[in-house]
């Protein structure tokens, strides 16, 4: 079942076009949005989270139309959202804040609500700090609080905007584990700059650039786009659109290889670089 269907969505902020007739479909599993800063990922996620409505085009979430107030409320009962720049009532403890969000999610039975708050706190590894004030927590722990509130009520659709930004490597791995677990049996749509996160987590990806979809498909399909276009050399190749010196002193070149080049298997990052370097290329896989 398609949980998220965005068709021809356009969104302008003043004279700036953030989204330009964009299409996206997402079902069960983790769908990743990849793209540079200002590509429109956050605008698209805010649309999927019912924060914004498109100026043109349609958005259907869980089979309902979020532009209709009754449907929007119904969707929000089944939605978890972690914004990019999530802030918290800093005077609240972790438990109090998540409990407050649970009240806003209309969990009125006190005992059942507290059980649910404790469940998401345990799930996100926040139990040791549940009585601490949020202002005393590190950035990584605060991101966990954001994820915990999004997981309240076991939502059918989880929207996470840059969930791993600002986290150290260990915290990122922990987050990947949590998101991967969350993606079992529900739709998760997330955005990231980190191709490693996308590779590790996503069953489908959409590459967005300048408000348009440049690629949709699986990470393997995107990676395959770069097959035969990554090679190593002792020097930077003039034919490469990107090249960098690796730790072992040789250059990794991405682009159109010269004859006789020593080709190596590409990564998702290589394919992403190639896609961004070729503005006219637009690929969609079913």
């Amino acid at each position: 079942m398609t949980t998220v269907r965005v068709t021809g969505a356009t969104k302008n902020f003043g004279r700036t076009r953030a989204l330009d007739s964009i299409d996206l479909e997402a079902g069960q599993g983790v769908t990743g949005l990849l793209g540079p800063n200002g590509a429109g990922k956050t605008t698209l996620l805010r649309m999927i989270a019912t924060v914004l409505a498109p100026d043109r085009g349609t958005v259907t979430l869980l089979g309902r139309d979020p532009s209709r107030p009754d449907d929007r409320t119904w969707i929000r009962e089944r939605l978890g959202y972690l914004p990019q720049d999530a802030g918290f009532h800093r005077g609240f403890t972790v438990f109090e804040f998540i409990d407050y969000v649970a009240i806003l999610k209309e969990m009125t039975d006190r005992r059942a609500r507290h059980d649910e708050v404790r469940r998401v706190i345990t799930l996100t590894g926040l139990a040791p700090v549940s009585a601490k004030r949020i202002r005393a927590l590190s950035g990584g722990m605060r991101r966990r609080v954001g994820l915990a509130q999004a997981l309240l009520g076991d939502p059918d659709l989880l929207v996470l905007d840059e969930p791993t930004v600002g986290l150290d490597p260990e915290q990122r791995l922990r987050f990947r584990e949590m998101i991967s677990h969350a993606g079992e049996g529900r739709a998760v749509v997330l955005s990231s700059h980190q191709t490693e996160d996308i590779t590790a987590l996503c069953t489908r990806i959409a590459v967005i650039h300048q408000g348009r979809t440049r690629f949709t498909g699986t990470p393997a399909e995107l990676t395959a786009q770069a097959t035969g276009r990554v090679w190593t050399d002792t020097q930077r190749s003039p034919a490469a659109i990107a090249a960098w010196r690796t730790g072992d002193g040789i250059y990794r070149n991405v682009g159109d290889p010269p004859a006789g080049a020593e080709l190596i298997p590409p990564t998702l990052e290589d394919a992403y670089l190639l896609l961004m370097g070729e503005p006219e290329l637009e690929v969609t896989h079913s």
């Binding site: 409320t73 914004p83 999530a86 969000v101 806003l104």
Partner: peptide, 22 residues
């Protein structure tokens, strides 16, 4: 104004509790 000042407003706005009721 605490939700606005702490930048929590967007997170709280996508709950079934409308802004009016809140």
């Amino acid at each position: 104004s605490s939700a606005r000042r702490s930048r929590a407003e967007e997170m709280l706005s996508v709950t079934p509790t409308t802004d009016t009721r809140r």
